[in-house]
Design a protein around this nucleic acid. Structure first.
Ligand SMILES: [Mn+2]
Ligand SMILES: [Mn+2]
Ligand SMILES: [Zn+2]
Ligand SMILES: [Zn+2]
Lengths: 139, 139
DNA sequence: ATGCAAATGCAAATCATTTGCATCTAAAAA
DNA sequence: TTTTTAGATGCAAATGATTTGCATTTGCAT
């Protein structure tokens, strides 16, 4: 289960880390540090915003979380790394976010590796458009 | 040529805008606002850093420039929109950047449009890996 | 139970980017 | 060409996300 991941990664099992893991586990979309912070407060618990940032930094380095996209262009948002491969499609108008869980890149990457002699480790892909709800609205 | 783009987009032809267009036109990689600012100084010219930001904002809205996903730390970087479709492959170690100018997304997008009912307007894709030069180095 | 390295809270610092406002300028109007 | 004016710029101060220094607390190995 979720909590074991800390042990497996050699991290101390602290209240903050468990809370953040829990929030991210329940989340159905990428969350910013601030959003995580607020959600924890809603659950009548409280940890410092700095701690949220520091924890996410540690989780990133241990590959427990990932930053799939930059929200609003300037806030990082985080998701739990579930070793699934997917991408997000974001509505330019209302910012609604849809998870796309298939990706045609396996072969594409091989082509590029041969072409460039790079070893490809990962890719980031974000799709932008207008959601069905916002189509036909002026802005 | 480069300068006509301002007229075509209904923008005043100012010194700042021409300088920034020129810098971006010559650039062989995405540039941050600060880098653009410094390069203009090197050319014995000078405009205010705020103006660089404001100009890039205008250019973004007019689709004259684009921001690739990759951030230089936490700074946005900009490229001229040449209506070519390409992506970057970046070395995780030395940050060397290679332009990849083919992309298999046309059909993929159609699939996703049908699946989600979104209208897809664009996508951002970046690839990360290790360049031939950095392969075999410890870190 | 004890000790210590690592984690946390809090406040202040950073740093990229934005903004208010007075002044200037490109280009439309006369 | 001169006048007019909406929009562009410079400068300094504000913003806002993220980071950091430091005193205190806590997880966990012994
Ligand atoms: Mn993919
Ligand atoms: Mn593409
Ligand atoms: Zn929408
Ligand atoms: Zn390299």
């Amino acid at each position: 289960m979720m909590e074991d991941i800390l042990l497996k990664k050699g991290l101390k099992q602290t209240k903050s880390r468990l809370l953040i893991l829990d929030i991210l586990d329940k989340a159905d979309k990428p969350l910013t540090a601030e959003e995580i912070y607020r959600l924890i407060q809603n659950e009548e618990d409280s940890i410092n915003l700095s701690t949220v940032y520091r924890t996410l930094e540690v989780f990133l380095n241990k590959n427990i979380v990932q930053i799939p996209l930059m929200k609003d262009g300037n806030k990082a948002s985080y998701i739990l790394n579930r070793d699934e491969h997917h991408h997000y499609l974001v509505c330019d108008k209302c910012h609604k976010m849809i998870k796309i869980d298939f990706c045609p890149f396996a072969e594409f990457e091989k082509q590029i590796e041969q072409l460039t002699s790079f070893t490809i480790l990962k890719h980031k892909l974000e799709l932008f458009g207008i959601c069905p709800n916002c189509q036909g609205k002026t802005k």
